[in-house]
Amino acid sequence: MILTLSLTVVGLILIGLYGLLAVRNLFKLIITLQILVKGAVLALVIAGETSGRLQLGQSLAVTVIVADTVVAVIALALAVQLKQQSGTVDVGRLDTLKG
């Protein structure tokens, strides 16, 4: 079971990394970041389970979940404001600060 879950962690992290490199929509970037962090949360709990300190892994996982949620909320607020200001959420077209 631990091997299966570890492979799931690797899969989720790889899917998230691929999405961060390939996706251009800001909302989808936030979604791929969430997928990446879910892999990290699962990895923390698996590490706690295998090392015999499951509660410590849970505590760290809760911290990561809270931080990830706050990051998602702030990023969504920024994306909405950016959409209303510049009319696009395409990261290729957001070149206002380009020198």
Binding site: L5, V45, G48, V62, I65
Partner: peptide
């Protein structure tokens, strides 16, 4: 998956 690992609190929060 977290619940099946025994991490009940994190599973509920997630």
């Amino acid at each position: 998956l977290l619940y099946s690992l025994g991490a009940y609190e994190v599973a509920v929060i997630e």
